[in-house]
Design a protein around this nucleic acid. Structure first.
Lengths: 143, 143
DNA sequence: TAAAATTAAATTGTGTGCAATTTAAAACCA
DNA sequence: TGGTTTTAAATTGCACACAATTTAATTTTA
């Protein structure tokens, strides 16, 4: 049954690559005392300054079951503040603290260093993005 | 700082795709009462019948910290047997039970159904595999 | 407008991943 | 050979992911 050989599955390379990439972030993120998903949240906040939990969840395809405890940990590190919106008390706004904003400087070199660490060529990066992003967008509405 | 925009990171599409793919397995794997990593172990065992924990770990890039509890769950479901080798008592051999072998029939249709569920073309699947696998092999020795 | 439906987070519980340590066995070697 | 090193799993502890449920607030609608 050829189809059930691991080497014939697409799923496995994608899964393995994801973990490989994440593991290469570790040395760099460790210096900032961030995990990889925490770094993704910080990337969004550095870009937008303030976001709701829902907006973070949509951008990262994560639900509150993952985000709530993660955000509480970022708050405990004093990188963000969580405040319930006054116009709509269901909503929680996430905003950067001064320390959270400052961390951006320390993170500036990471994307560059990562590409080196993974040994990827420009073509590979572009090729992967060009293949993957259309697939993700095709499935955007699913969340 | 353009480099720190989420949309300019390679890491995120890879991470998001991996979770998207895994989530699409869920309805199919749920019928077999398997999680996605458990399914990967079963794929290897269907192919090789018997493997050591170490060999499983090398093939899947997972360590005993992940595999030991996972394998205990598969054993609790009576799909595999875990027996310590007599020649080398450090080694644990994992072998399929009759039920574990039988499950292969039920899994036969999954790869086909998955590609449909994800709406991927042959070109996309081939393109992704061709891009990802060389990257993984380049980093094989790292584990 | 009051009840029903929807929405945003939080909570609960299970199963990974993975770093770090521990345990026990086997291999090495001075 | 006896002590050191290496190796294979297991264990411990922490942080995701995610399904399912709960809670509280807002919208919808009958």
């Amino acid at each position: 049954m050829k189809q059930l050989k691991l080497s014939n599955q697409l799923c496995f390379p994608v899964y393995a690559l994801s973990r490989l990439v994440t593991s290469h972030y570790q040395p760099f993120l460790g210096e900032l005392d961030l995990t990889y998903p925490q770094y993704l949240v910080m990337l969004l906040l550095w870009e937008h300054r303030t976001m709701t939990v829902k907006a973070l969840g949509q951008a990262l395809m994560l639900d509150s079951g993952t985000l709530t405890p993660l955000l509480k940990r970022l708050e405990a590190k004093k990188l963000i503040k969580r405040t319930r919106s006054t116009e709509d008390e269901r909503v929680v706004n996430i905003q950067l603290t001064t320390a959270g904003t400052a961390l951006k400087e320390q993170a500036a070199g990471i994307p560059q260093q990562m590409q080196q660490s993974l040994g990827l060529s420009q073509e590979e990066v572009r090729g992967l993005k060009n293949l993957i992003e259309p697939i993700l967008h095709r499935h955007d509405k699913e969340d």
